[in-house]
C-alpha cells in the first residue's frame, strides 16, 4: 500500500527535522567535542567514584560562585555515601535557620534535609559580585543546554588565548566552545587544583569529566531507575502486544 510508504517517510521526517534543526542552530559556533560518557546509551549508568570526585570539584571550586539550589545533602545518597557520611558532610556547612523564639535568625550546622547553601544571598548580589553576570545555578545546567554534558565539558576545557583581533573587555575571557567565544567566567580549573583521594589524575581534563558526570546526575538523579523501569515496561508491552497479535489473528482467522 502506498499509505505505508507515506507513513514511513512522515515518521522519518518527524524524527529528522529537530535533529537537522539542532545542527543548523549551532553552525556558527565550534561544536563541543563529542565525548563518550559512562551514563550515555540505553544501559549507561553513573560511575559513583566519578560522581564523588565531581562533587569534590564542585564543592572546592564551582560552589564559590555557583549555587545548586535544587540539591539537598540527603541527595548525596545517590553518590554512594551512607547516612553518617552525609550527616558529616552536611555538618561541615553552616546554615541559617529561624526565627527562634526571640524572633532572631540563627546559624546552626547543616543537616541532611538542608539544601546546598548558595554562595550569594540572591541573584542581584550574585550579579553585583560578578561584573553584572550572575553565575547560573548548576542544578539543571546539563539539561538546560543543547548536548549538555559535551557543552559543559567543552566550556571547562575550552579556555584559550584570545586571537589577536579579539577585543575583550576587562572581566571577559576567551573560550573556544562558548557560543560567541566571549565568556565572563574566568578559567576555573587548573591542573593539581583539587586533591583527589583516589588514583585519578589531577588534571583539568579529569576534573571536567568528573564534574560533568556529577552535574548530569544532579539534573537527572533518577536516570538509572528510569532506564531500568523502562526496560521492564517495554518488555511487558512487547509480550502483551505479541499476545494481542495472536488474539487478533485468531479472531480474524474466520474472516480472511
Amino acid at each position: 500500500m502506498t499509505m505505508k510508504r507515506f507513513a514511513l517517510s512522515l515518521a522519518a521526517a518527524a524524527v529528522l527535522a529537530p535533529a537537522a534543526a539542532a545542527i543548523a542552530k549551532e553552525a556558527h559556533d565550534v561544536p563541543p567535542p563529542h565525548m563518550h560518557w559512562h551514563f550515555s546509551g540505553m544501559f549507561g549508568t553513573y560511575d559513583k567514584a566519578a560522581l564523588q570526585r565531581g562533587y569534590k570539584v564542585y564543592r572546592e571550586v564551582c560552589a564559590s560562585c555557583h549555587s545548586m539550589k535544587q540539591m539537598s545533602f540527603r541527595n548525596l545518597e545517590g553518590l554512594g555515601y551512607d547516612e553518617s557520611q552525609i550527616k558529616a558532610i552536611a555538618a561541615e556547612y553552616t546554615v541559617e535557620d529561624g526565627p527562634n523564639d526571640e524572633g532572631d535568625m540563627f546559624e546552626r550546622p547543616g543537616r541532611p534535609s538542608d539544601r546546598f547553601p548558595a554562595p550569594f544571598a540572591n541573584a542581584k548580589a550574585a550579579a553585583f559580585a560578578n561584573n553584572g553576570a550572575a553565575p547560573p545555578d548548576l542544578s539543571l545546567i546539563v539539561k538546560a543546554r543543547h548536548h549538555g554534558p559535551d557543552y559543559v565539558y567543552g566550556i571547562l576545557t575550552g579556555y584559550e588565548e584570545p586571537p589577536a583581533d579579539a577585543h575583550l573587555q576587562p572581566g571577559q575571557n576567551w573560550n573556544k566552545y562558548m557560543p560567541g567565544h566571549v565568556i565572563a567566567m574566568a578559567k576555573p580549573l587548573s591542573d593539581g587544583q583539587v586533591a583527589y583521594e583516589d588514583e585519578s589524575p589531577a588534571t583539568v581534563d579529569q576534573y571536567a569529566r568528573d564534574v560533568v558526570q556529577f552535574l548530569t546526575w544532579a539534573g537527572d538523579p533518577y536516570m538509572e531507575t528510569r532506564k531500568r523501569t523502562g526496560a521492564k515496561a517495554i518488555m511487558f508491552l512487547l509480550v502483551f502486544a505479541g499476545i494481542m497479535y495472536a488474539v487478533k489473528r485468531k479472531i480474524w482467522a474466520s474472516v480472511h
Binding site: F236, L237, V239, F240, I243, M244, A246, V247, K250, I251, S254
Partner: peptide
C-alpha cells in the same frame, strides 16, 4: 472477550481460551 468469543471450532478451543485468558490477565496486571 474471554467470555464471548466462541467460533465453535472444536480443535484448538482450549488453546484459544487459554490465549484469551492470558491476554485478559496481562491487561488486568498492566
Amino acid at each position: 472477550v474471554t467470555g464471548q468469543v466462541g467460533h465453535s471450532a472444536d480443535d484448538g478451543a482450549t488453546r484459544r481460551d487459554f490465549l484469551f485468558l492470558t491476554a485478559g490477565s496481562f491487561g488486568a496486571v498492566g
